[in-house]
Every structure is written in C-alpha cells, then in structure tokens.
Design a protein around this nucleic acid. Sequence first.
DNA 1: CTCAGCTAGATTTTT
DNA 2: TCTAGCTGAG
Length: 740
Amino acid sequence: MNILEGLNPEQKQAVLHTEGPLLVLAGAGSGKTRVLTHRIAYLVEEKMVSPWNILAITFTNKAAREMKERIENLIGPEAHNIWVGTFHASCVRILRREIERLGYDRNFVIYDADDQKSLVKTCLDQLNINEKNFPPNSVLGEISRAKDELIYPDKFMRMYASDYRMSRIAAIYELYQKKLKANNALDFDDIILLTINILSGYPEVLDYYADKFRYILVDEYQDTNTAQYMLVSMLASRHRNICVVGDDDQMIYGWRGANLRNILDFEKDYPDCRVIKLEQNYRSTKIILDAANNVIKNNMGRKSKKLWTENSKGTPVNRYEASDEHDEAYFVARTMRELKNSGRSYSDMAILYRINAQSRVFEDVFMKQGIPYKIYGGLKFYARKEIKDVIAWLRVVQNGNDDISLKRVINVPRRGIGKTTLDRIEQYAAAEGVSMYRIISRASDYPDLSRALKSLQDFYTFVENMRGLASRTELVSFIETLIDKSGIIRELEAEMTTEGKTRIENIKEFISVAQEFSDMAEENPALEDFLAHISLVADIDDTEEVGDRVVMMTLHSAKGLEFPVVFMVGLEEGIFPSYRSATEEEELEEERRLCYVGITRAREILYITNAKCRMIFGSTAYNKESRFIGEIPEELISMPERYSSGPLQDNSFHKGSSFMPSGRIMDLSDLKARIREFNRQSAENDASEVNVGDRVIHKKFGEGTVKAKVYEGGDYRLDIHFDQYGMKRLMESFARLKKI
DNA sequence: CTCAGCTAGATTTTT
DNA sequence: TCTAGCTGAG
C-alpha cells in the first residue's frame, strides 16, 4: 500500500518533511489526523525509523486511542511500540521511572479536582484563612494557573509581595505543594511540572529521553500551555524533529492556561521551520463552512487562513427558536425521528451544548420519546461517591501517606472513628510532620486517642494485611477481596434501599473495569498502574461505541469529532456565550472559537436552536438569542415554519395557558408580543400571590407555611408545610390559597 | 459517635 | 435541582 496515496499536495509535503521543525496549520476538517497518522506510517515504513523512537502527543484519551488504531491499520502491530498518549499519560510514564529523584515515592497517587479541593481546605484551616474570603476553587484556579506558567511558590510570593490577597494565596500554594509531597500525591499540573523538573535537573534523564524521541508529533498544539510547551521543547532539543499541528481558531482551553503564543510564535522559536497550511476542507458543505467563516472572522489577531471546499453547497442552516428548553428538546427529538425515517442513522446525529447541565432535558425527553442516546462526559463514573470510596481504599493500601484518601475511608463503613478523633490525629501529624497513617500506627502512644484506640488499631492492621495481600495477589481478585473485607458492600446492603442497590451495581461495574484493564495489559498489572489509568481516563464508557444512538456532549468534548448532522442547542446570551465571559473580550473570543468548533463539526446538516426562556439551576431565565446567530449571514439560514402546531402541542408550558390560541397560525412578531404580554401578566400575578415564608390557609389542609415556590409549566408549584397535614406539593392556580 | 433533617451554595468547559 | 456540610438530639 502506498502511504502517500490519496493525500493532497500540502498533506503530502507535511508527511514528507520529516527532518527539522514543522508547523502544520490545519483548518477544521482539513485532514490533520490523516497527516499525523500517515506521517508516522511513513517514518516507520519508508524511513525505517524504529517505532520506539517516536512520540505522539494528543490532547484527549479519545484522540490517542483513535490515532493508535489508525496507525495500526496502516503499519500493523508494530504500532504498539510508539508512544501515543496525552501529555499527562506520557509524563506519568516517565515519572514512574524517574520520580524518586525528586524525593517522591514511585507509587504516588494522582489527585482529582475533589481531592485537590479537600487538600486546599486543609491548608486554609491550618493557616487560619477564611474559606469565605478565599474560596477553595478560586484559590485552586490561581495555583493551577501559576503551575501552567511554571511559576513556583517562591516566585509567586515574590511576584505578588505587595498584593495582600495574592500573597495569602502564595502561602496557601506553598503549603499545598508541601502537603502534596508529604502525601506522595500529584495533582494534574504536577504531572507536567515534575517531569520538567526532572528533565531540567538531571541531564542524564534529559539525555535519555531527548535521544530516544527522535521524532515528536504534537496534536492540537494551539491548546498547549506554557509548561507543556517547555516540556516539548526539552524533549525535542536533541533531534529537533518536531512536528506540531494546530489551528489557532480552535483554541478553546484558554481557561486552562492554553497559550496561543505557542503556536503563533513557533516560527520564532524555530527560525528554520517549515510552515504548511492545510486550507482545503473535506468535511463540510459550502454553506456550513461559510457560516463558520463568517462567525470566526469577528475575532481579531488570527493567523490568516481561508478555508475552502470542493464539497457541494448543501442545505441552509436550520434555525429553531423554542419557547423553552422542553420545546427545544422536543423539536430536536422530533426532527431526529424524521431524519431517521428518511433513512439516516441516529448515530449520524449529535447534540452539542455549552454546559453539561443542558443534557438533562434532552435525556428526559429522549427517554420519553424512546430515542436511543448516549451522553459523553458529564456525570463521571469515577466521581460517584461509592466509586471514590473504593478508589480511596485502594490508594490508602497503595500509599499510606495519602491523608486525603485516608480521611475519606477511615470511617467507611462506620467503625466509630469520628471527627474529633480525626482532628486530633491530624494535629499530631501536622505537629510531627508525618502522615496521619503514621500517627495511627502508633495510636497507643497518644492518650487522647484511647477512646477510639481499638478501632484505630483494627483499621491499621486491616490496611497492613491488605497491603501484604496486594503484593501477592492478582489485581482483580485483590480488589474483590478488599471490597468484600472492608465491608463497603455489606453496609450498602444493610441500607436496603434502591439507591444502595445502584451503588452496589456501580461497584460491580468498577470491578469489571479493573478486569478489562487487566485483560488489556500485557502481564499482570500493578495496582498503581490501574490507579493511574483511572485517574487519567475520565470516562469509562467512552471505550465502547455500540448501537445506533444519538450522541450528546459539550462543545469542548466535540473537538476533533465530526457528524453528518449536528444540533447546536442553547444558543442564548448567558449560556453560549457564557455569562462568565461577558466582561472580557478575550474570553468572548474564546466562546466564538468554541462556536466555530461546533459549526465545523457538521458535515451535511446543521441545526441551531435557542430557547426564549429556560429553567436553569433552579430558576427561570429569559435569554436573548446568542450574538453568534446574528453573525451567520441571514441568507444561509432557514427558519422552519413550525410555530403553528408541531412543537407547541408537545409542550406543557402552553397547556391550559391562555396566551396560545390553538389552531391559529402565528407569525413571529405576534408570538413575541404575546410572550411579552404573558410575561407581564405573570409578573403582575406574582405581586398578588403568595411567596416563600407566607402563612396561608387552604380549604382542606388548613393553615400552613409556604416553603418553596418554583415556576413550572406556566404556573407556580408550591411546597407548603401544613400544620396539621405536613408537607404538600400544590399548583398555585388550583390551590385556592388565602394569605393570612 | 451517629443520624436525620435542614440550609446554603454551586454549576463552564477537561487532563 | 442536587449535594456537601452543619446542627442538634439521641
């Protein structure tokens, strides 16, 4: 097979230019994955480069898996020896071998966002800093940004010496970092940072890896941050055969420290570099591309690039303005069914939204309508309580210094070790500068631990036994034993609730994940490998893609994917663009890039929808349509004439409400006027009606207090606590309440 | 120490 | 809407 076959001239050049630095500016749908995989195949098959000398870095696990598969299809099983992975996965691989140089233990654990938050809280406690003034999440944001920029605590301190708030954060940062090390734990940023530390501090290590990786390829280069940039530069320093592929218009991770300078200044960093632009789009219709180009041209400071395509013109962008989020979901469901009836598969269709919370309504409606779907991301399997508990147990066994996990499991299931005891242990640990587990191992030395002494000793013995077992037993059976002996399942069974049952099911699912991991591994995998795997791979179910199902995901996770039919939903000011980006022009541009990414996912048909009113985070919002809709030229858009019958009948919002006369066809302005009228009326009604906290009288239930009031389907749902009858849920218009 | 019941708070996007 | 964390009674 000829590796160069079917490539256009630019793609061919990118494959053939193997020596020296290369920047490929690849527009959306221009075949960049194709270039990357063929380039690797070319290196191995034609240039006789050993797979062992190649490093390919992707941004997501999904992309890594896909790339591996495609390379394997081209060159066969040799592909296994190529390092293909995310930045984080590749660095963990290096750290497993080298981290002891930095005084960490080889069996370090990786903290996720929850663990990080707990740790920051511990730091705040210890430094007597109020959580109210220093919310853990925003502190973490600052720390993370500093790490992205390779700013260490001491430098951070010096930079902000004159700024009270920031110097407090510097103190937290310093303690946080110390505790991470004491816990033998790394957060996500550390994975990159510590790898850089080793490479820069130990020339022999740098030598080894810089020599090993004769050819380095980086995908999604526009989304790399300063630390990642540094890492790549170091690894490429010896051979300088570095090929980066990216598109500045698709930079959507600025909030995570992605630095556009990396791609914009590549030519300065490597003056001898070759730049190749891929501008022919093979994915989308002319209209879709036109729409995307018109949106993105509103951004300033881009690399000049004009995407074009030989594809057909296609159909106009379909626009639907829903009355609320249910209407929106019903519209999508109905349209999808029509498409299915006209011969499309559900798996050809995707719903893309800005925030995970938007998936809920779709899930609801799709379930009712019997449309098969699959949600990517969102509720993470590993984030569930019971799963986190099991993982924390495994971590404690693996690494006793992990205080965060220890605190999590020491009383799961209950064994009479409460907050007081834990606080004391923590204080001793801090005072002596050792881990909590160490204190527990010598619990009898501390008189104030006497009350819980027995429990503590039992716990200690149990963990020690398990640790011994872990080294002797095969992974899966060890995990099963631990789950069994720890009593987690027993406690859940004792609950006798459906919730408990689900949790047990999830734990079983977790065991099968371990089984799968074990099956995939070459030999019997170590516990630490499994733990690292599940820390770095966020989603379990993105491994299998089965059946004819619609997919739903955020715009961020859609990057790199394509679908024949795309529904971009919730195009409203405040949602997309997000209200949080409203103030900064730069953030707004990032939202616009996200919109560009969304539009360019579509191959043939694109739907854009917005809802006039939307219930979000428990309250109702009336959002204007997104400015991005206005940026698509009107002549590219078609508005389905559906306002009369279809969607609105499905929609409980209008049932029994007077503002929608049935059977009459209405034009848009008419509808708008009526919605205004309706809103005005409800506002008026509101004034005279009961509110939370009011005392009311009901004919049947007597006196009570209004506890909650939620707008629902054109009415208010009231939760009222009646003195005689307790809590009742009533709809306001039927309840006939009198205020007292 | 545990449990139930309640309140306050949070929800952008991901490795 | 959901959940983490707090409070007060047992």
